[in-house]
């Protein structure tokens, strides 16, 4: 703020505030340090990393590592780069996010506006699913996927993530719609709109903020998931598993620059989603929690 010295309430504790801000800046720098290291080293030739300082800027800027990570690096036994796995991830994450968000919205709509006997129990059980650790469901899920004939395929992964995400998306939408006036639904009923028409024309148009929350949450979780991908991915493994295979390979020279580039590539989509929609994320989180 302005540096004009004034004898007012706003001027008190200026030193304390400057101190707090300094500490915050230091924390932010510390937090950003790994990103800096990754970014800087991904643009260096490998010799510069092995022979020099991790913190230094590159002497020779090169995109070689990025190209290698994307299309030629050895992933497991094939020198395919991360590209096919990136595609797998996209094919998995887009339908999984879309389906779980839409189903969550419908669940929230039913649980708040079409109450039925025992609806609290249903919601409670769905909420409970948010707290089930991944590891517990691995074996039952493997059996289910096998029986459905979806084991080791992208649709199988989509199903796993939809089921697992439903608890969260339902929670978001239920809380958001709980604050939505029921009189509007009643008015629409009198106007002659049916179940889906009310959802589509009345509720969905005002669900923007919470849909963004749901999409960001689901996208981040599904994209970053490793365990399900490694367990059920089969031949169509997602990006995270491929990155692991790239970085953890035990043969040959460790190409740190390629690893850094690959890691950034794997993190990029969630970063983009957050930057594009992050503003709405905070707003939507608040919208659900406080009654308007």
């Amino acid at each position: 703020m302005s540096a004009v010295a004034q004898e007012s309430a706003a001027g008190t504790g200026r030193a304390a505030r400057a101190g707090i801000q300094l500490v915050l800046v230091l924390f932010a720098l510390f937090y950003l340090l790994p990103l800096y290291v990754m970014g800087v080293n991904s643009f260096k030739p490998l010799s510069e990393i092995t022979g020099g300082n991790m913190m230094a800027l590159p002497q020779v800027w090169t995109l070689e590592a990025w190209g290698a990570a994307w299309s030629t690096a050895q992933i497991g036994v094939e020198p395919t780069g991360l590209r096919p796995y990136f595609l797998n991830s996209i094919l998995m994450v887009v339908p999984a996010v879309a389906i779980s968000t839409i189903l969550g919205a419908l669940n929230g709509y039913v649980l708040t506006k079409w109450r039925f006997r025992g609806d609290k129990w249903v919601f409670g059980l769905m909420l409970f699913s948010c707290f089930i650790p991944f590891q517990i469901v691995l074996i039952p899920m493997a059996v289910t996927l096998g029986k459905l004939g979806l084991a080791g395929s992208v649709p199988g992964l989509v199903l796993v993530h939809v089921v697992y995400g439903l608890g969260f998306t339902t929670l978001y939408f239920r809380n958001y719609y709980a604050a939505f006036p029921t009189e509007l639904v009643r008015a629409a009923q009198i106007d002659g709109a049916g179940f889906f028409r009310i959802f589509w024309r009345i509720l969905l148009p005002v669900s923007g903020p919470i849909a963004v929350v749901s999409v960001i949450w689901q996208f981040t979780n599904i994209w970053n998931d490793f365990l399900f991908g490694a367990s059920f991915g089969g031949t169509s493994q997602p990006m995270t598993v491929a990155l692991n295979n790239l970085v953890q390979s035990s043969t040959g020279v460790k190409e740190y620059n390629v690893h850094f580039a690959g890691a950034i590539l794997a993190a990029l989509p969630t970063l983009v989603v957050y930057i594009v929609a992050g503003r709405y994320f905070v707003r939507g989180l608040m919208a659900g929690s406080v009654k308007g």
């Binding site: 006036p181 009189e183 509007l184 009643r186 008015a187 024309r201 009345i202």
Partner: peptide, 8 residues
């Protein structure tokens, strides 16, 4: 309705 219930 009391709250008018206009579709926002």
């Amino acid at each position: 309705f009391q709250s008018y219930a206009l579709y926002p």
